[in-house]
């Protein structure tokens, strides 16, 4: 579950450096292998507090011993992706568009209006999301954080459910894919709660099925989707 909470205080952003001291002066996207090495250094620096300097060279092996090679690779991938996303958040639209691969005119989402959503397979059926227990938990948490918020006032919920039935394209068989997204929004308090963010990949992982297709533009047009329902709380 994800919560977002907006603050009014400006963020003073330290100079963003992809590279730690002593790392190569290569830029992050100049090559994937360099990026991985750079982030491995960052990872090792993070680990430095838990091992003597003489054993720095064995950090990856030690981490692998604890977590396994797969999870270490996942962590490295998350670091690379997180650093890029961090830069994209701070860059203006033009600069962020240039940073995308391939470069684009704008990074702004095409999904800004209901028409764009309807054009991508949503069938117009309404769904509602109610989870008072969740709202109560969040309200308690935010009170502990000294946030003065009336979470039950002006709260909206939105839910998307997507289902693509099993089908065949030529000789390829595609199993059923589902996805479910459920969010609660309080615009006055500046709160967004992601109650459920189950992507098709996540749903297939949970069902222990191999992912055969994702949200490609072609596939998205064939999704049977439930239109988001926006409901004002009493």
């Amino acid at each position: 579950m994800l919560f977002t909470h907006s603050e009014t205080a400006p963020l003073v952003y330290p100079r963003c450096s992809w590279l730690l001291p002593g790392a190569s002066k290569q830029t992050p996207h100049s090559s994937q292998s360099t990026t991985t090495k750079t982030n491995l250094r960052a990872l090792y620096a993070m680990l430095a507090t838990s091992a003597p300097a003489a054993q720095m060279g064995t950090f990856r092996e030690r981490l692998e011993a604890c977590l396994g090679n797969y999870k270490v690779k996942e962590l490295e991938k998350a670091l690379i992706r997180g650093q890029k996303l961090h830069q994209l958040m701070f860059a203006n639209d033009q600069m962020a568009a240039q940073m995308s691969i391939p470069p684009r005119r704008t990074i702004a989402s095409a999904f800004r209006h209901e028409e764009a959503i309807l054009a991508n397979g949503y069938n117009g059926a309404a769904a509602e999301c109610e989870d008072p227990e969740l709202l109560g938990i969040l309200s308690d948490i935010l009170r502990q954080d000294s946030v003065d918020l009336s979470i039950f006032g002006g709260t909206y919920s939105i839910e998307h459910e997507l289902l693509m039935p099993a089908h065949e394209v030529g000789s390829d068989y595609y199993p059923e894919a589902t996805a479910k997204f459920s969010q609660v929004i309080n615009p006055i308090g500046g709160i967004i709660i992601a109650c459920q963010n189950m992507s098709p990949a996540g749903a297939n992982r949970e069902a222990e099925r191999p992912l055969r297709h994702g949200f490609s533009s072609k596939a998205a047009t064939r999704f049977h989707c439930i239109k988001p329902a926006i409901r004002a709380a009493p």
Binding site: T4, H5, S6, P10, V12, Y13, Q87
Partner: peptide, 20 residues
């Protein structure tokens, strides 16, 4: 996960633009 979202300071914006 609880995210704290803030307005981006214009100086930070200029800084990141130079980096980018």
């Amino acid at each position: 996960l609880l995210f704290y979202i803030v307005d981006v300071d214009p100086h930070a914006r200029a800084e990141i633009s130079r980096d980018a």
